[in-house]
Write a protein that binds this DNA or RNA. Structure first.
Lengths: 161, 161
DNA sequence: GTGCGAATACTCGGATACCGCGTGTCCGAGTAAGTGAGG
DNA sequence: CCTCACTTACTCGGACACGCGGTATCCGAGTATTCGCAC
C-alpha cells in the first residue's frame, strides 16, 4: 500500500502554479524541468488533474496548463483523489458471510455494516478529512515561510522574467 | 493505492481466535474453511502475523496458530502494519530541491521539513492514530453485539465441540 | 497386558509461478506564431 | 505598407512497452498420533 509518486509531483506543481499572478498557461516542458521530472510521465499525471477539474489545459503552440480554481479552493484530497483514482483504501469483501462461520452465524444481522469495515473506515475517514482540511494555498504559505525566494524562482523557471 | 486483501483476512482471523477460551492452536485448514479462503495464501499472511509477534505458531501434527497476546493488547494498526509492512503511505523524494526551481530557490532553508511532506504526513498520522486506538477486542465486541451467535459458530468451526 | 519402534498423517515454512497496476516512453492531432509574396 | 496564405515549431492527448509487488500455489522439514510386534 504505497502512494503513487505522482502525488508529490502533482502537489508541487499545483503549488508552483499558484505562485504565478497571471493566467498564461505553462507547458509540461517547463513544469518538468522545474523539478527535474520526466516530461512525458508528468504530462500523464497532469492530464488526470485536468480530468479531475483542478487544471485547465490549453492545446497548441504556447499552450500548457493553468489552475482551474484559485489555490484556496483546491485541497490535498482533491489532488490525491485525482492521481489515485478516489477509491477507498480498504475494500470489504464480506468474508464474514462466507465459509462455515458465516453460514452458521447466519442468525446475526448482516444488514448492519461489518465491524471490521466500520473500524478501518473510521481511520480512513480521518485520513480523508485531514487531507480535505488542507488547501494548496495553505501549504504554499507554509513553504514560502521558510523559503521566501521560491516564488521568484518559480516565476523565473516558468518564463516570467 | 489499494490495501492488501490480506488485511481483512488477518483481522477477521484475529477476532475469531479471540473468541476461543483455551490456548489450543488452530490449523490453517480450519481458519481458511471458516471464511472460504485459499488455505495456502492465508498461511502466508499468518506467517507475517507471526513475524510481527501477533500470533504464535505450533509446528507439527495438531499444530496451528494461536494469539500471542490477549485481544485487548492487539490494535488494528498492529495488524495493518504486519500485513502491509509498516512503511509510510507517502514517501517524499525531495523534488523541491531538484531542477531549476530547487537550484534557484537554494536560499531557502532545506533543513526544515518539506511542507508537502508535513501536510500529507499529518493526515497519515491521523490514520495511524485512529487505527492504533481500536483493539481487536473492541471490534470483536462490536461484531458480537449484532451477531451473538458468532462466538459459538467460531468455536464449532474450529473444532471446539 | 505392556513397552517400544516404525509407519503414518497432518502441520507449518519457505521457494516457486502468475498477473495487474504503477512507471516510463513514444508518436500523432491540433494550434499559434513566424515568414514571405502579392496587392 | 498592409493582407493573407503557407510553412514551421511547439504543445497536449492518447496509445504503446517494462518492471515490481500483490496474488496464488506447491512441496519439503518436522512432529504427534497410531499401529504392530516383541516380550
Amino acid at each position: 500500500m504505497r502512494m503513487s509518486q505522482g502525488v508529490e509531483w502533482a502537489v508541487h506543481t499545483l503549488i508552483n502554479l499558484g505562485c504565478l499572478d497571471d493566467d498564461e498557461p505553462v507547458s509540461t516542458t517547463r513544469l518538468a524541468s522545474g523539478h527535474d521530472l520526466p516530461r512525458a510521465y508528468l504530462n500523464k499525471q497532469l492530464q488526470q488533474l485536468v480530468k479531475a477539474g483542478l487544471l485547465e489545459s490549453v492545446p497548441g503552440a504556447r499552450g500548457g496548463f493553468r489552475l482551474a480554481r484559485p489555490p484556496e479552493a483546491i485541497t490535498l484530497l482533491d489532488a490525491v483523489d485525482a492521481i489515485e483514482g478516489g477509491g477507498a483504501l480498504f475494500r470489504c469483501t464480506e468474508i464474514r458471510q462466507c465459509g462455515t462461520i458465516g453460514a452458521r452465524g447466519a442468525g446475526g444481522d448482516f444488514s448492519v455494516a461489518c465491524a471490521v469495515k466500520s473500524s478501518i473506515g473510521l481511520a480512513e475517514r480521518m485520513w480523508r478529512e485531514t487531507l480535505a482540511g488542507q488547501t494548496i494555498a495553505a501549504i504554499q504559505a507554509e513553504a514560502l515561510a521558510h523559503a521566501p525566494g521560491m516564488a521568484s524562482a518559480v516565476r523565473h523557471a516558468y518564463g516570467r522574467d
